[in-house]
Amino acid sequence: MVITAIRQLLLWTLVCGLLYPLLVTGLAQAMLSRQANGQVKGLVGQDFSQPGYFYSRPSATAGKPYNAAASSGTNFGPNEPKREEQTVRFGKDAPADLRYASGSGLDPHITPEAARYQAERVARERNLSVARVEELIGKHTEGPSFGVLGHARVNVVLLNAALDNRGASK
């Protein structure tokens, strides 16, 4: 029986551990190579420190914020005093998603409210009208997928890239 067990283990290691991931890789590369190679823009969040950009949520990744090589949340419980320390950048009346870190530390999104909350600062820094910035936010706001799945959101990376492009074309 032990011989059978060894043979079975080796066989399934080959099939599930090698052939299956290779088959998925082959099919994915053939049909969906952009997605399979992580080339989709704005999937992973970035850190923004210049006031002319919309800020991302706080991030607890190791080493530096939005370190994509070491995802992590803060793991602070709701009564933990340290949890409030990360909110310093925005103050108490900012929308909650902007005050608290995401689970991955790599969230590319903020809520539309959190984007509008920052519109005035960004407009001031870039010498734009608030209305123009809010228009951009509106353009980058996605509702829940198919109307039911997930949450309304603004992709900070794409929104900031659009701000930059706008400047370049001006």
Binding site: G73, R83, Y100
Partner: peptide
């Protein structure tokens, strides 16, 4: 409660 949750 947004701590530890993703916006999407």
């Amino acid at each position: 409660n947004w701590e530890g949750k993703e916006v999407r």
